[in-house]
């Protein structure tokens, strides 16, 4: 991070929008920081609560008074229900590095799981059954474990049918900082993503705020994995138009 020169007390810059920002709805750029919606950290409610509202909205468990001594509950606090929150309707799928275009990938991948087994960081997992057509194919979920972009790509070497290929770019997507969620844009200090991005020079920090170079970002998702903002401030998107292999 470059340190400012002695007299460089950066005057407030006027926010500007370009077309791309507009298309991507990055309108918060226009708001002055003081006017930004404050960050709120929300915790999953209790398991009973989640089950109740998800499965049988009408039969929400009557909030039965917990066993207590003089108003002090002696019931253990139910565990946090990280795994029972409803999955979103639509979500992006990330393929391991070097994956061919999706139609070729789906056709060629034998669901053998070899790439899953060789990944030293447990980043590759088989898509679960509820994912329908793609169930069993390898995916990467940076929220669980990010791809660390191994130098030798054991996953590609392990792929026998060759739907992961060294001939193709190993980029799996791209990341962006969602500024209105980012701590560095909320008058506090956070430099985690820029410190941990494994690819040199992708995240630059100016005035304490990170910017991702979408051209060189590999989409590994490390930044998303480590971002400690109350709502994850890294938007990660898979590579949209993966090239096909000449067959």
């Amino acid at each position: 991070m470059p340190s400012p020169a002695a007299d460089d007390n950066q005057p407030s810059r006027k926010p500007t929008l370009n077309r791309r920002d507009l298309l991507q709805g990055r309108l918060w750029k226009l708001m002055r920081p003081s006017e930004r919606t404050p960050l709120v950290m929300r915790y999953p409610k209790t398991r009973a609560d989640v089950d109740g509202s998800d499965l049988a909205p009408s039969s929400k468990p009557s909030s039965k008074t917990p066993r207590s001594i003089g108003g002090i509950a002696i019931e253990p606090v139910p565990p946090t229900a990280f795994d029972t929150t409803a999955p979103p309707r639509s979500f992006p799928v990330f393929r391991p590095p070097g994956a061919v275009a999706e139609h070729q990938f789906l056709a060629g991948c034998t669901r053998c799981g070899d790439c899953v087994d060789v990944c030293p960081h447990d980043a590759i997992v088989k898509a679960p059954d509820r994912m329908g057509a793609i169930a069993g194919t390898p995916t990467i979920d940076a929220d669980a474990n990010a791809c660390l972009m191994c130098e030798d790509f054991p996953c590609i070497s392990a792929c026998e049918p060759g739907v992961l290929s060294r001939l193709l770019p190993t980029t799996i997507g791209t990341a962006r900082v969602t500024e209105h969620l980012c701590l560095a844009h909320h008058s506090t200090i956070c430099t985690v993503c820029s410190e941990r991005c494994p690819t040199a020079g992708v995240i630059s920090v100016s005035d304490g705020k990170p910017t991702i170079d979408e051209g060189t970002c590999t989409g590994c998702g490390v930044c998303r994995y480590v971002c400690p903002a109350p709502e994850n401030a890294i938007l990660l998107m898979p590579l949209l138009n993966r090239p096909s292999l000449p067959s």
Binding site: L22, L23, Q24, G25, L27, P88, R89, S90, F91, P92, V93, F94, R95, E102, M131, G132, A133, I134, L235, M237, P238, L240
Partner: peptide
């Protein structure tokens, strides 16, 4: 500005890789 009060962000809903 045009915004859609939809859960899916335009980015992910437009991907061929997305699953519904």
């Amino acid at each position: 500005f045009v915004g859609f009060d939809d859960d899916a962000t335009p980015d992910s809903s437009s991907t061929t890789d997305s699953v519904d």
